[in-house]
Design a binder for these strands. Sequence first.
RNA 1: GGAGAGAUGGCCGAGUGGCCGAAGGCGGCACACUGCUAAUGUGUUAUACUCCGUCAAGGGGUAUCGAGGGUUCGAAUCCCUCUCUCUCCGCCA
Length: 441
Amino acid sequence: MLDVKLIRERTEWVEERLSSRGKGHDLSAFRQLEGEKRALQQETEALQARRNALSRRIGLLKKQPVEANRSQELIAFLENVEEGKTEEELDLEVKTIGPRLKALEERLKGMESEVEAVLSGLPNLPHESVPVGADETANVEMHRWGQPRDFDFPVQAHWDVGTSLGILDFDAGAKLSGARFTVLRGGGARLSRALISLMLDIHTREHGYTEILPPFMVSETTLYGTGQLPKFREELYATQDDLLLIPTAEVPVTNLVRDEIVDASTLPLKYTAWTPCFRREAGAAGQDTRGLIRQHQFDKVELVQITAPEKSYEALEELTGHAENILKRLELPFRRIVLCTGDMGFGAAKTYDLEVWLPAQGRYREISSCSNCESFQARRMKARLRRGEGAKPELLHTLNGSGLAVGRTLVAILENYQQADGSVVIPDALRPYMGGEARIS
RNA sequence: GGAGAGAUGGCCGAGUGGCCGAAGGCGGCACACUGCUAAUGUGUUAUACUCCGUCAAGGGGUAUCGAGGGUUCGAAUCCCUCUCUCUCCGCCA
């Protein structure tokens, strides 16, 4: 969510920044609406103040032990409060102030939710360092790491490698649950578990993150906090109990600071979590229909950092580096790109994608996405920090990134480490987690 | 699933219709006192929005006592609904 004051005071500038994401945003109607809302708020509050003043006087009078007729007292006090008005007028006011207030409050509430509806649908402002562009073709490569291997035999896609080895079973997944579900068997299942352990161990022991195991189902409020709701409901799986399945661990883990004011001295908070992720992939019909690349359910190890505002860009570099370390440890060639304005997610101010080399596709594919959301999520979540006693609370900055998507890492290993005989060599770093085995065959 | 109890400020805990945004205590902060520390005294210590003010200092207003509705001139207090927590019983990995 954007700062209303910013929209109010620098409307054109905000429009310009938003429009760089590709879709034009005309905020003039919003500004008018918001202005009317504030006028109504002032009117309402003035009436509330009047009601409170009158009620207080009545209370004072009733407290006094007077035998006299109550209505006499009322008239007396009313004359005292408001000179120049007749008793009848004032008596009338007391009696009608309630209904009038109720009408005003209802209208105000209606306008507030209108304002809120517009506001919660606006994406974050891109950071000034983000390249402007319409789509992924405008993304900019930052650097590459590792050398794609030369194969002296025909390279197989991971679905062929995995199926031949009997460790990926797409038919079984389809039978149990339908398209975009897969069953991992034997070494495949173990490899997946090994990757999760490796990633969590590195992030907790070497990168200083605290491991979290959050709920996999969360409330709408929680999804609102990180920006998935109200706009992206069609991407989510719902249940019959007002709980929805998480599309990423970012949702429950970031919401840990919702409605909190954290002491600045405890920052940054660094959390890592393995969770399954559930996505309907509603808009992805026909894309990546084969293989493990795009599934309705996949495992991911997530990195989340909660920082002071001035530290968040430093933290983005650090966090992205942590994700890169996993790829380096697994000796998988990758590159880092910075997403352009038009390709970024809803809540992000700046995003780096890590793309791993997939030899069968002959190109780099996304395996991690690391974003700084600045105060966008914090404002929705009311997540704040306080710098010492008496200081005003300020909004935190939130960051998240995959470290890494487990299914896609499995894909990368199967493709990059495949051998001429159809077996797959296990990367050195992973062998301790695979009972010392060096190869899946 | 059944029965009961409860939800108040950073924490503990009063408050059953009216100067209550909320007593008291603890904790925090400031100042005073003290040879140092300890102790003591005094003051201070929620958040958001909004208006005035130079989006300064500061001041005014409104809302918030789990959430939402209702009664009332007036609700932390009364009524209804919901959520959550705790205790006991049942069930269960």
